[in-house]
């Protein structure tokens, strides 16, 4: 028998090795984030949804009218994470929150850097903290922070 160190070995790396187009609607959304703008999409009933989708979730019809939104909004629900896991948006305790941006009708899921749970409440105002190195991803918004 040969020694273990003589064995053949190969690295095993789990990865998604494809490139995929985001399509006309999400493509605009992520390009907008790279440029520091948040775009929603107008639905058939006139309401504005963000993140946008190519098709109306209720009716299934194609929608593509993009609407620029403010980077401020209101917390409609939140969950306080005492001990963040690896890869989560912040290293210290933070809130995941559903945030209804000004100009939108449905909330967006993101993180709020509030420092302490007692600083969080439903209805509070927050503003996006932008990443210094935007790449066209949801993480171009580093997180949201309370507006005094």
């Amino acid at each position: 028998m040969s020694e273990v160190e003589d064995s053949l070995s190969a690295p095993h790396r789990l990865a998604y090795t494809y490139k995929r187009s985001l399509g006309p609607v999400l493509g605009q959304f992520f390009t907008g984030l790279r440029d520091g703008r948040i775009l929603g999409v107008r639905r058939a009933d006139g309401t504005v949804m963000v993140p946008p989708k190519e098709y109306d979730p209720d009716t299934g019809e194609a929608i593509d009218e993009m609407v620029e939104l403010a980077d401020t909004g209101e917390v409609v629900s939140w969950a306080w994470v005492h001990e963040p896991r690896p890869s989560q948006p912040l290293d210290q305790a933070f809130a995941y929150a559903l945030i209804r941006l000004d100009g939108a009708d449905t909330p967006l899921l993101h993180a709020v850097d509030a420092g302490d749970e007692s600083s969080m409440q439903t209805g509070m105002r927050v503003r996006a903290r932008w990443s210094d190195e935007p790449v066209g991803a949801i993480t171009d918004i580093a997180c949201f922070e309370p507006v005094a």
Binding site: P51, Q88, Y96, L109, I138
Partner: peptide, 12 residues
């Protein structure tokens, strides 16, 4: 694209 990169865990 719009949610998973934030790694919201199932409990959150």
């Amino acid at each position: 694209y719009s949610v998973m990169p934030l790694w919201p865990d199932a409990v959150s």
